[in-house]
């Protein structure tokens, strides 16, 4: 019978750590609701930046929305843009400092509603930036109103009987839309609700960061996430609902990979 170390013996030796919070996240408590995918998405991006040793060369652009305070949580150089204009600001930063790694972090109200023009044109121009897009199908920060990405028949604060596609149109698949443009180089859709999906999302984020160095075009990673407060569910229920309803409409996987 071998000797089994006690809990105190295991945790006092820092060499035994197999996973800990990255130092590129600040100690500020995240402003997100319990169970929100934003926290995981922040952590994955910062982990990849740390592993690639890019923290001194990274400039992030924060959006308007739930993640407006991303600059408080990410311990790198950040800039906050006007609503939806993050790709335009990132374009300017990247053109002035082409050697830096520039990314935007945006939600669906920011990227797919008010910022559609900026997003589409930044993608069409093939700017060498990386866009991280967190899609939860709702305006989370303002109280759960209907967004362009809201699913048909989904109840929100402004569509209490469900989204009626006759009067309100169809959910905007902006990721498929921009994948058709020749200016984009790598387009992928991931989620962060299970350990397996977290690992896949991290791989996609790694690729999106590596491909920026090639200067071949814009890299875009969509992260389908939950909004348990907006959807009025517990975090676990909302993840299940997301699997059953969001994934059929927003299928996961790489949409455009470099040849």
């Amino acid at each position: 019978m071998s000797y089994i170390p006690t809990r105190e013996e295991i945790i006092e030796d820092h060499d035994n750590v197999v996973y800990e919070r990255t130092c590129l996240l600040t100690d500020n408590p995240l402003s997100y609701c319990p169970g929100c995918g934003h926290g995981t998405a922040h952590r994955l991006i910062m982990e990849v930046v740390e592993e690639m040793n890019l923290q001194a060369d990274t400039i992030g652009v924060a959006p308007v929305g739930c993640s407006v305070l991303a600059y408080d949580f990410m311990n790198i150089d950040m800039q906050q843009a006007a609503h939806g204009r993050a790709p335009a600001v990132a374009t300017g930063i990247k053109r002035l400092m082409p050697d830096k790694f520039v990314f935007t972090y945006q939600g669906d109200g920011d990227l797919a509603a008010i910022g559609t023009g900026e997003t589409l044109h930044a993608c069409n121009r093939g700017e060498n930036i990386t866009v991280f897009f967190v899609n939860n199908g709702i305006y989370g920060m303002t109280g759960g109103q209907m967004a362009p990405t809201t699913l048909p028949n989904m109840k929100t604060a402004t569509s209490p009987f469900g989204r009626d596609t006759e009067s309100m149109g169809y959910p905007l698949k902006i990721t498929e839309l921009i994948a058709m443009l020749p200016g984009t180089y790598y387009v992928s859709r991931q989620s962060v609700h299970t350990p397996a999906n977290v690992r896949k999302a991290k791989k996609a984020i790694e690729k999106a960061i590596q491909y920026q160095k090639l200067k071949k075009g814009l890299c875009f990673v969509e992260i389908v996430s939950n909004c348990n407060s907006g959807w009025k569910m517990t975090p676990e229920e909302s993840n299940k609902w997301m699997e059953e309803n969001m994934f059929p409409y927003y299928p996961l996987g790489d949409i455009k990979v470099p040849k």
Partner: peptide, 25 residues
């Protein structure tokens, strides 16, 4: 068993995972 699944899905990064290999005699 230190699989890190809990730490991977934790949105707030609240979990640190430790793992040691047991020496078999």
């Amino acid at each position: 068993n230190g699989c890190t699944n809990c730490a991977l899905v934790c949105p707030d990064g609240a979990i640190t995972v430790y793992r040691v290999k047991l020496k078999e005699e």
